[in-house]
Write a protein that binds this DNA or RNA. Structure first.
Lengths: 141, 141
DNA sequence: CTCATACCGTTGCATATGCAACGAATGTGC
DNA sequence: GCACATTCGTTGCATATGCAACGGTATGAG
C-alpha cells in the first residue's frame, strides 16, 4: 500500500483552507456575529456595489439558497438593502446600507491584518501560492 | 471602500479547496460510494496500519463524531474492522480488511492520476504550493 | 484503596448545507 | 401573439455537520 494521504494535494489543500477559514471566521464572528456566507456576501458587495443574488452565487462558489438566506439575514440586521431591478423584475439588486459600509470599514483592516499574518507565515512562497490559486480558479471556471 | 474579496487569500484558498475537493469527491463517490469523511478515514488507514479514532481525528481535522460515524459505516460495508486495544480498553483499533485494502488499491491510482492532473494545471508553481501548505499546516498544529 | 479527574468513542440534538421544486418573470420559436 | 422553455430568487426538505453530554475506562493523589 503505497498511497500517502499526507502527501496528497487535494487533501492538504482542504485541511489548510478549513483551518484558515476557521481562524478568520472566529474574528468576524466575534466582531460582528457574522457567519461565513454572510461575511462573503457582505465582502463581495463591498467590492461590487450593486449586484444580484446570481452574480454573487457565480463568483463565490456558494449555493444560491445560501446567498439568498445570507442576504435576508443581512437585510434584517440593516447591513444590506434589497431593491427591484429596473428592467428585469426577476432580479434583485443588493447593496450595502450606510451601516453595512461602516461595518466593512471596521472589518477590512482586520481582514488585511489577518492576511498579512498569513503572508508572513508563508514567507517567500506566498507569491507562488497566489499564482497557483489563480490557475486553479481559472481551470474550475 | 478599498477591500477586494477577490484578492483575499483565505477566501481564494477556501474556494479553490472546495472546488478541488468536489471534483475529486465525485470520483470516489462514483467508484465506491464513499463520502468525504469515509474517504479520509480509509485513506488514512491505508498509510497508518492500526490506529484509533483519536489518532485519525488529530491528523485529519475532522470531528471525532464524524470519524466515529465514518468508521462505523466503513465497518458495515466490510472495508474496516474494529477491535479492542490490548491494554487500554477505551481505545478502538481500526484497520483495513482485505476488502478495504483491495478498494484502496483500486482508488490509489485514481487519486494519483487526479493529483497529477492538478499538478499539470499548476505548472511550475506546484512545488511552491506544496511548501506553502506545509508551512500552514505547521502553523496551525 | 478510594475518590476525583481526565480521556475515549458513541450518540442526541440543534444547526448548516445542498438539492430540488416552486411561483414569478423573461426570452424564444413559430 | 402564443405556447414553451429558461432564468431568478425563495422555500421545503433531507442530509451533513459540529457541539455537548454520556457511559465506560484509565490515571493520579492522598
Amino acid at each position: 500500500m503505497t498511497f500517502k494521504l499526507d502527501e496528497f494535494l487535494p487533501y492538504r489543500l482542504s485541511v489548510a483552507a478549513a483551518q484558515i477559514s476557521r481562524r478568520f471566521a472566529s474574528i468576524y464572528a466575534a466582531e460582528a456575529g457574522l457567519t461565513i456566507p454572510e461575511w462573503r456576501v457582505l465582502a463581495h458587495l463591498a467590492q461590487s456595489a450593486e449586484v444580484s443574488v446570481r452574480d454573487i452565487q457565480a463568483r463565490v462558489n456558494l449555493d444560491k439558497s445560501m446567498v439568498s438566506r445570507a442576504a435576508t439575514q443581512l437585510e434584517e440586521e440593516g447591513y444590506v438593502s434589497k431593491s427591484g431591478h429596473g428592467t428585469d423584475r426577476r432580479l434583485i439588486v443588493l447593496q450595502l446600507t450606510p451601516k453595512g459600509i461602516a461595518l466593512m470599514q471596521r472589518l477590512a483592516p482586520l481582514a488585511e491584518q489577518f492576511q498579512q499574518q498569513i503572508l508572513t507565515e508563508l514567507g517567500p512562497d506566498a507569491e507562488a501560492l497566489a499564482r497557483a490559486l489563480d490557475r486553479l480558479a481559472q481551470k474550475n471556471a
